[in-house]
Nucleic acid binder design. Structure first.
Lengths: 241, 241
DNA sequence: AAGTGGTCTAGACCACGGC
DNA sequence: CCGTGGTCTAGACCACTTG
């Protein structure tokens, strides 16, 4: 593991443990480079990680400070899978169930070929899952993935977490994703599986996700009951430009 | 302007102009440091900017490549104000109007004091605006801002863009924001101003936004007609950790 | 083996803020 | 003025991919 990442992890833990108070000074870069026996450049790389995470900020000429939102940010899951990997979000405090409504392998239609950048001969998984939290239907997930990119999906994996399988078993890294978020009226499936009434809105998120090698691996649509799906996002503006 | 930012800007323009084809090699770092007469470290800082923007990616041992999504990412506005500053988003191709429904200055209630981290004696603006695109009501915006942080808001500014005023006139920098996105049933105001029927869903985004000095400056809620508000987001996973 | 990106160093100078 | 963070250098070595 690179030194700057280890330093960042150490510092992140310090922030979590409130070793430095909000809006109180962080140790200066000189002190940190002595403490970790490294150069200032390496310290700066470590600090940059925490800055992009929003945990700290620096003022030139003044110092580095713990952001007042540090605690809140830590609670927010900022990973790509945050709206998909329901397992991670609620696994600790709630009882999660997945009902597999559909799980087939078939050839893609035009829009799927386009989104996943595959040919009509490349097979895809076509998965529909209903997520149930504490016995209450929560979200309907429609997932399409190319078999050649994510081989070996099984019923067993679907019941747990696809993302965990991709990261830990296939050892692939997730890079980025495009999302479209909108409100919609409920359709027949929503009414049936999510117990929606006609006037109950749906929060829909359509996503195309990419590996860090620029390969699309997922094209999905998730539909939440309006009173269950609350998306929380932290946005950091990219200062440079 | 720092050298690495200028290099990043130059390279970004090159990507925009398709001077390097998608998934085709980018010049290597050695070549770039010669071209810009600088060190490799500086080149890497420049490349890092484009990487966090998702425009390029690198594979160790192999090279640097233009991301296949580069074009799409450029179209997506990734600024903090993307859902507030309707002006920027549609200003060029559509006719935008703002109707000021309410504009008062008053003392904050408990939740506003909390969100904006101010005392009950600190005045806030209380602004309600209806945004109209091409003669069609689009979104209702409820904005609260502390007067002491953003002084001098006037009717004139409200008709244009608050964000432009903050950045250009007050010369403040926007740092980050928390957003909560959800679907909701329409309320009386939605029905009146957005012409919603009872079964027309609303897309609601609640936001607290911060300056880069960690000071909250905006607590807002925007409500879109379900058939008008489409939020598009690009998410880059932070590799390190 | 050669070429690529990733990390790291030990300094230097500058810009800014506060005393 | 001094102490802070921001930028930049000219190398070095390592890790990885590809021929």
């Amino acid at each position: 593991m690179a030194k700057y990442i280890e330093i960042a992890n150490t510092l992140r833990t310090s922030v979590s443990n409130h070793e430095y108070k909000n809006n109180d000074p962080f140790p200066d870069q000189q002190a940190l480079s002595k403490k970790f026996s490294t150069s200032r450049m390496t310290i700066q790389k470590a600090l940059n990680i925490l800055k992009t995470e929003g945990l700290i900020y620096s003022k030139q000429g003044s110092g580095t400070f713990v952001s007042s939102n540090a605690d809140l940010i830590e609670q927010t899951d900022l990973e790509i899978n945050q709206y998909i990997g329901t397992t991670d979000l609620f696994g600790k405090t709630h009882k999660i169930n997945s009902k597999i409504i559909k799980f087939t392998i078939r050839y893609p239609d035009k829009s799927e070929q386009n989104a996943l950048r595959i040919s009509k001969k490349d097979l895809i998984y076509d998965i529909t899952r209903l997520r149930i939290v504490d016995e209450e239907p929560y979200v309907l997930e429609y997932t399409k993935m190319p078999v050649k990119v994510i081989p070996g999906i099984s019923d067993d994996i679907l019941k747990k977490s696809i993302y965990h399988y991709i990261k830990s078993d296939l050892n692939l890294k997730i890079g980025s994703a495009f999302r479209k978020i909108r409100a919609d009226k409920p359709n027949l499936f929503d009414k049936k599986f999510l117990n929606c009434k006609n006037e109950d809105p749906i929060l829909e998120i359509t996503q195309t996700a990419f590996l860090n090698s620029d390969i699309p691996f997922e094209f999905s649509r998730v539909r939440y009951r309006y009173d269950k799906g609350n998306m929380v996002v932290f946005v950091k503006s990219s200062f440079e430009r």
